[in-house]
């Protein structure tokens, strides 16, 4: 299918790269379907989620373990049930990247995205604890 994107231009996406967020991404409950674009910058592991119904809505996402190797959390049974997760290999974790106007780049380690890559169901969860920073800094430009 063709997905429209103000940021990336219109592009073709295969069914296997369409992700459905059970409750949407927090703050955007009406948008559930996103196209997962695996590379938007050459030589950089930055990916994109482009909303399928709102061309203005795009999130940059990254693998948090590339930037915060100490990052870890326990996935609750409820979340595993919601996403029909039966084995660990099905799980991919991403976090949302924010390029801030003060030129800092931060990751939201507080609210990671949990994706089951076998059925493409996903949720954004909220973690409890001071070690999970809402604005984890990963470099100043």
């Amino acid at each position: 299918m063709v997905v429209r994107s103000a940021r990336l231009g219109d592009f073709h996406v295969e069914e296997k790269d369409m992700i459905t967020f059970h409750d949407g991404i927090l703050g955007f409950p009406e948008s559930k379907g996103y196209a997962w674009v695996h590379s938007i910058e050459p030589n950089l592991p930055i990916e994109c989620l482009q909303c399928a119904i709102n061309e203005q809505l795009t999130f940059m996402i990254v693998d948090p373990f590339l930037f915060a190797p100490e990052y870890e959390f326990e996935l609750s049974e409820e979340i595993k049930q919601t996403l029909n997760i039966t084995s660990e290999e099905q799980i991919v974790i991403r976090v949302i990247l924010t390029a801030r106007s003060d030129s800092n780049t931060t990751l939201n380690l507080r609210a990671p995205l949990i994706i089951n890559v076998t059925n493409n169901k996903a949720v954004q969860i909220i973690l409890d604890g001071p070690q999970y920073q809402l604005q984890y800094p990963i470099g100043r430009g």
């Binding site: 703050g27 999130f59 604005q135």
Partner: peptide, 14 residues
């Protein structure tokens, strides 16, 4: 989290 998501959705890397 909602605010952070809204800022993220508007942001672009220089």
């Amino acid at each position: 989290i909602k605010e952070q998501n809204e800022i993220a959705a508007k942001s672009d890397l220089t």
